[in-house]
Design a protein around this nucleic acid. Sequence first.
DNA 1: AACGACCGCAACCGCATCGGT
DNA 2: TACCGATGCGGTTGCGGTCGT
Length: 340
Amino acid sequence: MGRPPCCEESGVKKGPWMPEEDEKLFNYISKHGSGNWKTVPKHAGLNRCGKSCRLRWTNYLRPDIKRGKFTEEEEKLIINLHSVLGNKWSKIATHLPGRTDNEIKNFWNTNLRKKLLQMGIDPETHKPRTDFKNLSQLLCMGMANNKNNLMSPWSQAALLGLQQPDLTQQLVQLQLLQNLLQLINGDSSFVNNMQSSLPLLDNHISFNNNPIELYASPALFPSAPSESGQDVSESWTDLEGASSDQQVSGTKNTSLSRITHDRSQVENLLPTFDSSTSFNQREVNVSPIITHEVATQPTTSSTIYDTDYWEKLLEDYDTNDAFWKELLDFTSTSESPISW
DNA sequence: AACGACCGCAACCGCATCGGT
DNA sequence: TACCGATGCGGTTGCGGTCGT
């Protein structure tokens, strides 16, 4: 036998609330407070269960509830909080005065989730997605929809690329390389490194003097320094209970787990960029630690962790269609769990 | 105009957690 | 410490509105 329903009383009303019911509940709670929710419907003269009354009050009738559309600031805050806290809607709601957990949850599921997907970011992990189909979607999004400023650097670059096609091409290739490496390796340490390094480690980067604002989820960019010089990831770890919650539970491989890594170890693995130079001129200094080799690597003995490997790769294939051919050949024959 | 598909949101369900005894 | 009722929370459902054909 299963668990009995929360409202054992027969004939208790369910479904949408009538204005008269709202009025009764509002008047009662305003006068007496909630007290014991189980007794509220009886005292308020409602044919509802206490749970239903509590929900109606907390999600709709409460006088401090903020109505209307979410602002861009709220959107960004929710995304960033979600990257740290996961689906802890009530915790997220505590950082958005006047917004209920239910409202935020709905907003996430109906808007932000899709938005992140279109940006090429996995809404669960807040990491770049690993399927290639995503790329064309991402670029279309970038060119067709510029209503929000939460676009991925790739989408933003796509827009700039209308004037600078060579730039777009370069970025697209980088994104594809990143995706490819994730497929080939299945090596989380390297994937993490690349995800940290490819967004260029700055909140603001410029391509040929055109500033591009990154969507800078602190979990996505664990090494990104904030403008004040404080480490962004550290500033996020003091969100109440975040670290302990997820470290203890350990049920998901969330982005938070990376935040709580020993930072010196993480930083040693990361490529470094000289922020004073433009993207095209940046020098990539990578510690040659791991020796996996890529099937499509160009004629060089260096590994994917060597600086010259990447420089060579990009040089070799920058304007060469053979790169894409090889890429597709490789991916179509590899035993990848990803569907194409 | 009719219909179906899709979307957003309020509300429900059931498990988890809290707090009193 | 164990039990139990109350409350909190997150996932899911279902309804009403909108859009496209």
